[in-house]
Design a protein around this nucleic acid. Structure first.
Lengths: 214, 214
DNA sequence: AGGTGTGAAGGGTTTCACAGCC
DNA sequence: GGCTGTGAAACCCTTCACACCT
């Protein structure tokens, strides 16, 4: 399915999980508003998963939830590795652990001897050398890459070699992995600079408005 | 300009900054590869900023850098506020501080009395009540929102009311701000679940490949 | 020959608008 | 009447292809 739409499906699921057992049915425009999309878009996103609502009751919450989970989750293990337990990694660990019991970070890797073999947020930190060994043994398919830029490409290749097929990459550098490995880049600095650009533009627009309003 | 392209312009600038004084000229395909985009896309992204390269030398690094900065940065202050110094916020502070000397986080806000009035990474933490006061006094236009979901909408509105025109939002909820305020949403849980989905799909594809290859 | 700038084509995503249904 | 599912249109973004330049 379309890349963008998959992301939104996870938002629908997340919202529905909290609604479950508070209400049994929901209309597209209600759910859409909670997620921040248009009703038309929600309905279109739902089309490929084949779950149908009824015109006068909307969607059955439990049923839609089940259908979404079936399409979003594969048959796999739903375990995740965290590569790099630095400043950012150490924050991501509790972040994901607290939020999503369905996707569990079960192994972390770092080079710092101070961190190796410690357990952080219920997750053991291994020496980076053991990356392939642990990922293969645990059959981990998803890795979060939060290492310094210089080592990111190497780490990504090693993870892919050990069986990882999905990477959430925080390093600001293009990875080089086999075609079938899915990479989602999150570039926080880019995001902040983008916000700054449009924020500055708004200032100009406001000032322009002032001159025309005066 | 187009939303996506602006993001990439920041990547070109970041890369060029490191190249500066190591080489004086660069071709589109070289820079494009470093950033992870196609050469055609880079040239198209550069079109609106009006900086022209020469066919046999490419782009002059210093000149392009200056031109990019002129278009990306407005006339404003380039200061940022961090709202919410919890698990994620405490990581973002050193992250941005270490990376980007041009955009400085100069004020943070939290409700935890333990944190208030302390200085973290050179940034003072204020009581959340003083949000409007400090943002207005410092003329901050950009804020990073890293508060719990329940308080995000309120914080965003207060920030916008105090003069913020750009928000980098980590809370998984749609904000409600005036039209002219630019919002960039970063939903880490969505990103991870998206990766998981495609990672699982790849497993299936691989297995399908196996059956056809056998 | 091997670059750049750009019109035109292509592909993906979102919105519109409406038939069909309860 | 007000909802759903969906073809069609609109929009945005990326790639192609090529004239032009050195």
């Amino acid at each position: 399915m379309r890349e963008r739409a998959i992301g939104r499906l996870t938002l629908y699921r997340r919202t529905l999980r909290e609604l479950d057992e508070k209400m049994t049915h929901i209309f597209s425009h209600q759910l859409a508003k909670m997620v921040g999309v248009s009703a038309a878009q929600l309905r279109r996103d739902l089309m490929p998963i084949g779950y149908e609502g009824s015109p006068n009751r909307g969607y059955e919450v439990a049923g839609l939830l089940a259908s979404l989970s079936q399409h979003l989750d594969g048959p796999g293990s739903h375990t995740v590795a965290l590569i790099g337990v630095g400043n950012l990694g150490r924050a991501l660990l509790p972040y994901f652990t607290a939020r999503n019991p369905h996707l569990r970070v079960i192994a972390a890797f770092d080079t710092d001897p101070q961190k190796i073999d410690r357990i952080i947020c219920g997750c053991r930190v291994y020496a980076l050398e053991r990356l392939e060994e642990v990922i293969a043994a645990e059959e981990i398919k998803v890795a979060i890459l939060a290492v310094p830029r210089d080592t990111a490409i190497d780490c990504a290749q090693r993870a892919a070699g050990a069986g990882v097929t999905g990477l959430l990459n925080f390093a600001p550098i293009p990875l080089e992995v086999p075609r079938q490995v899915f990479v989602e880049n999150v570039d926080l600095t880019m995001a902040l600079e983008k916000v700054n650009h449009f924020a500055q533009r708004t200032v100009e627009v406001r000032e322009a408005d002032h001159t025309t309003t005066d």
